[in-house]
Simulated assay, not measured.
Amino acid sequence: MNNEHSPVTPRSDNLLTSVGMDHVRLSYCYLNDGDLDAYCSLFAEQAVVRQPGRRPVTGRQELERVERARRATRSVRHSIYEVFGSGRKVAALGLLTHRRHAGPAESDLPFVDVFTVADNGLLVDRTTFLFSPGSSLCSAD
């Protein structure tokens, strides 16, 4: 039974969500393998990537340049626990590990990435949220 409180998602939105979820999963596989060409190919030409403490990266070419520069000094590993989506939004929950080429591992950081998917299935933006060790998500007053 359909009413304004129980909308039916059109089949095309379900397909778009599914494609977006596949592209998000693939993006982490490509990042973990160091295949930056394949990683960047999942993003729209003018995609925007936002990460804490960094300026937004705009465009596929800039994304590739920034990722290559990061990998020159450290390796990055994404362990994904869950990927879910609704409509044009897809979220991934996981653990981010940075290892400097010269030195000990940094702290592992839990993260959430939220993506927006374009009509053609490419990723048009990615926003990263990190949980910092020692911080709390809410106040326990």
Rank of each mutant, 00 (worst) to 15 (best):
H5E: 14
V8R: 02
V8N: 05
V8G: 04
R11Y: 01
D13K: 13
N14D: 11
L15Q: 11
L15A: 08
T17D: 13
S18V: 09
V19F: 09
D22L: 13
H23R: 11
H23V: 06
V24Y: 05
V24P: 03
R25W: 12
R25L: 14
R25N: 10
L26F: 07
S27P: 05
S27Y: 04
Y30K: 15
Y30C: 10
L31H: 06
N32D: 09
L36T: 07
D37N: 12
D37T: 07
Y39Q: 15
C40D: 13
S41L: 08
S41T: 09
S41W: 09
L42G: 14
L42C: 12
L42N: 14
E45G: 06
E45T: 12
A47K: 00
A47W: 02
A47T: 06
A47V: 09
V49Q: 00
R50L: 08
R50M: 07
R50C: 06
Q51H: 00
Q51L: 04
P56C: 01
P56F: 00
T58S: 03
Q61S: 00
E62D: 04
R65T: 00
V66L: 04
E67A: 05
R68E: 07
R68C: 11
R68G: 11
R70I: 07
R70K: 08
R70L: 14
R71E: 05
A72L: 12
T73G: 10
T73C: 11
T73P: 05
R74P: 01
R74C: 10
V76H: 07
V76G: 07
E82T: 03
F84E: 15
S86Y: 14
G87L: 01
G87H: 11
R88G: 11
R88E: 13
A92E: 08
G94P: 15
H98A: 01
R100F: 04
R100M: 03
A102D: 00
A102I: 08
A102Y: 01
A102H: 02
A105K: 00
L109V: 01
P110E: 05
F111N: 06
D113W: 04
D113V: 09
D113Q: 05
V114Y: 01
V114S: 02
F115C: 13
V117Q: 13
A118N: 14
N120S: 14
G121Y: 15
V124Y: 13
V124T: 13
D125V: 15
T127W: 08
T128C: 13
T128E: 10
F131N: 09
S132G: 09
P133Y: 06
P133A: 03
G134M: 11
S136K: 11
L137W: 06
S139G: 12
A140G: 09
D141V: 06
D141F: 07
D141Q: 09
D141S: 11
